[in-house]
Design a protein around this nucleic acid. Structure first.
Lengths: 184, 184
DNA sequence: CGAGGCCTTGACCGCGGTCAATGCCCGTGG
DNA sequence: CCACGGGCATTGACCGCGGTCAAGGCCTCG
């Protein structure tokens, strides 16, 4: 769940990016990536919303990432290593995304070292925010986690259904409902 | 908590690595990195053991990473972005580590593109394993988490004190003790 | 209009937290 | 060399957060 792609990108970089990527649209509930298959693309969401999840052994979905406009999302291990995707990415709304194949991504990085840095920073940011997410999931109660979440991602609160936010926070929809009630 | 640095590295790469890094030793309880300061190095543990943690608002330590021989550890966000470290890294035993400054790391990557790939893979692996760690922390009970942990990292079970493993798993030492008792 | 998806509410229960006491191991100093 | 103290693991009693099961309401879409 990391954003960016911003100001620092030059016009030239953008045209090259356009040449080496393409758009695709997805309907609600359509999969961008399916667990078990290979994830060949990373996705930059232009419009819409989607989320990635793992299936637990019991069969319930554990939300890992949430993404709306201007967010990047992919199954990192599958995309970069060519292994089987462990997560599924699903559209929550009709979604339009920019798709970048791995080879083209490498090409882009060679053409514009800035891309390289750019994506490394993206990775590093994801890593850092996952570290804090783990720390908070471990140390804070659901109450705090929800408050922090809605402070930090107010735009998600409006767009994403509660049962997915609940899963993202590591609780059940019923609990989230009760928490919200307490906060009047 | 990701390992590697293995077979694929050539002799030449190693000598360059040696030129651009240096060793340092730490005593038990000494800090490799302190939260609030800048983390200028990434550490490859040659001997010993250490762990990184966040301090919660209540003041208790939340273990994020564990590392013994052949593991890399650092505060990724601080190291790569030059910002303040959010985590503290502390030696659990007398520890000998290889330190790589960021500039030298960049140099190494330019000299040997393999390093670039190598560390990107490292980052990606960490990312992937954090994703699964989040999913499991969220979806499985402490029991399962401990069983999986000890299956996956038996060497940690032997070396790392229980109260740190408990924190890593997101529970209290007392609970871990009870769980272990149940497993006779 | 009916069906299905999502949110809410209630009742109950169990996992894991908290507080507190005990025991063990080990390093340190008298 | 032994006594003491501190850090860590264990155990017990109790409690509360969040899970589970179940029912009901609301909204959307066919």
């Amino acid at each position: 769940m990391e954003r960016t792609l911003g100001e620092e990108i030059s016009a030239e970089m953008l045209t090259d990016l356009n040449k080496l990527s393409f758009e695709k649209t997805y309907e609600k509930k359509e999969y961008l990536v399916e667990a078990g298959s290979t994830c060949n693309y990373q996705f930059f969401i232009l419009e819409g919303a989607c989320f990635s999840y793992y299936l637990s052994e019991k069969g319930d979905k554990n939300v890992i990432q949430l993404a709306i406009e201007e967010y990047w999302i992919t199954d990192a291990s599958s995309y970069f290593r060519g292994t089987e995707a462990v997560s599924t990415i699903e559209a929550l709304e009709p979604t339009r995304a920019l798709l970048i194949k791995k080879e083209n991504f490498e090409k882009l990085c060679r053409m514009h070292p800035l891309f390289d840095r750019f994506f490394r920073i993206l990775l590093q940011n994801s890593l850092a925010s996952l570290h804090t997410r783990i720390a908070k999931t471990i140390s804070e109660d659901a109450d705090h986690r929800y408050k922090n979440f809605s402070k930090r991602y107010p735009h998600f609160i409006k767009r994403i259904p509660q049962y997915l936010i609940a899963s993202y926070l590591g609780i059940k929809p019923q609990s989230l409902s009760r928490i919200r009630k307490k906060l009047y």
